[in-house]
């Protein structure tokens, strides 16, 4: 029973990872790629780790998988924030379809 639940969680996680990687290939500019990739891949990997927790139960390895989840969450969100700010300061323009840019005044 536990094996089935863990397998379902891992499958869902890999589907989210697949969507994130399609987003990396298809979307047109750097900012949108970062949006798709960070959200989907982070939630996918958290789901895989949750599946590992269900497979091992409450034991040494299961608790270790639970510890990995908050570290992964904090790390990837902060890394995405730092990366998108660095991209703007590096001088990459927003894509052609964009409608609004309030940050331009704040930088100068």
């Amino acid at each position: 029973m536990n094996n089935m639940i863990s397998l379902i969680f891992i499958t869902i996680g890999i589907l989210f990872n697949l969507l994130g990687c399609i987003g990396i290939i298809r979307l047109p500019d750097t900012y949108n790629r970062l949006q798709a990739a960070t959200k989907c891949v982070t939630l996918g990997c958290c789901s895989i780790l949750f599946g590992v927790f269900f497979h091992f139960g409450i034991s040494n390895a299961g608790i270790k998988a639970l510890i990995a989840i908050p570290i992964l969450f904090l790390g990837s969100t902060v890394a995405a924030h730092a990366l998108i700010r660095g991209t703007y300061h590096f001088g990459i323009k927003l894509g052609e379809k964009s409608v609004k840019d309030d940050y331009k005044d704040a930088v100068q």
């Binding site: 970062l34 960070t38 780790l49 990995a68 990366l83």
Partner: peptide
């Protein structure tokens, strides 16, 4: 551009964690 490559490196690092988790099962 250079930031595109860095996005790739970041996502690659997260995906490797998933590979480690599956191998541990």
């Amino acid at each position: 551009s250079i930031p595109d490559r860095m996005v790739g490196v970041d996502i690659f690092g997260i995906l490797v964690v998933g590979i480690c988790a599956i191998i541990s099962i």
